[in-house]
């Protein structure tokens, strides 16, 4: 069987069936584009978690009385807390910030906003233990152990805020993937329909092939190549769409957030990662849909 002969059959088939092919390509492109978007958001979530994981600290605030009476943390209560923290296997490191240091930091932070400085007195601020954890997700264990201990005002953690960010990112990803799955289902139906129409419009060819003893595989091959070709064009459009979206949309809107370090940089590796999955998914999706349709509906 010559490749050129099969290829010319495929081209003829695509030309004859052009409107259906275009519909299928566009639906595949949209569904795979959304899937790619979902994959990128998933990767972004993971990398954001890693980015923040190192920075997350638990803050153990001391009571105002404790902060004022023992500014250098030399008393028994403060030393006891410090030793407990250092002895805890979940804790990677501990640093102590006195009331004075907290006030100085406050002054630095709000140097340009005198009204903020005016409303705070040094005596109202707490001395703080800043605790880095081995596993940031073990925050609650520290919180349970230290909340209510003598000298402790409260235990605070940034991971609660981060959880909200992550759940937002997860929701965006889930919505994108759900829509992608529905679209993929529509794409599979369209591929099936395209193959049925193609087989119907070429039933004279296929009936002759059957009669002269062409193998089933040989008879099906042009239809499957057509479907996979259309699927690959859909994949290419989906990847192109993601590239355009990155250049025109993501870079402009998220550029400033990324430059502040709140989000990891969304670079070309994200597109490579998405393409790495989209190309095989596109090929398998269209090839399998075509094969199943030929087996189920088309007598060859």
């Amino acid at each position: 069987m010559r490749a050129g002969f099969v290829f010319s059959e495929v081209l003829t088939g695509l030309r004859r069936n052009v409107t259906m092919t275009i519909a299928m390509i566009l639906t595949t492109a949209i569904s795979l584009g959304l899937l790619g978007f979902g994959l990128i958001v998933a990767k972004l979530t993971d990398e954001t978690r890693t980015l923040y994981g190192d920075k997350v600290q638990v803050q153990v605030y001391l009571t105002v009385d404790q902060s004022r009476s023992d500014p250098d943390c030399t008393g028994a209560v403060c030393q006891g807390l410090l030793e407990d923290l250092r002895g805890n296997p979940d804790v990677a490191s501990v640093s102590y910030e006195s009331q004075e240091a907290a006030y100085q930091r406050y002054l630095r932070t709000f140097a340009s906003q005198p009204e903020m400085i005016a409303i705070v007195r040094k005596e109202a601020l707490s001395a703080t233990f800043r605790v880095s954890l081995v596993d940031p997700q073990r925050f609650r264990v520290i919180s349970q152990d230290f909340t209510g201990k003598p000298g402790v005002l409260s235990v605070d953690d940034q991971s609660e805020v981060l959880d909200k960010v992550f759940s937002l990112l997860n929701s965006v990803r889930n919505v994108a993937i759900t829509i992608a799955l529905i679209q993929a289902f529509a794409a599979v139906l369209l591929i099936s329909n395209m193959v049925q129409v193609a087989a119907l419009s070429r039933r004279t060819e296929t009936s002759i092939m059957r009669l002269v003893g062409a193998s089933r595989w040989r008879t099906q091959l042009p239809f499957m190549i057509e479907a996979v070709f259309a699927g690959l064009v859909g994949v290419a459009l989906a990847i192109l769409g993601l590239v355009v979206a990155k250049l025109t949309f993501v870079d402009k809107i998220f550029g400033s957030i990324i430059s502040t370090g709140l989000l990891p940089p969304i670079d070309g590796t994200y597109l490579v990662f998405a393409s790495y999955w989209l190309i095989p998914i596109g090929i398998v999706l269209s090839g399998a849909a075509a094969y199943a349709t030929l087996r189920a509906y088309v007598r060859l």
């Binding site: 069987m1 010559r2 002969f5 004279t204 002759i208 002269v212 008879t219």
Partner: peptide, 24 residues
């Protein structure tokens, strides 16, 4: 007859050989 209308006489006859993999 069941001929392929878009193929010439020789292509119609050759088709039976092409699809069973005979060399050109």
């Amino acid at each position: 007859f069941r001929l392929l209308t878009n193929k010439t006489v020789e292509q119609n006859v050759g088709f039976a050989l092409e699809v069973i993999g005979r060399p050109r």
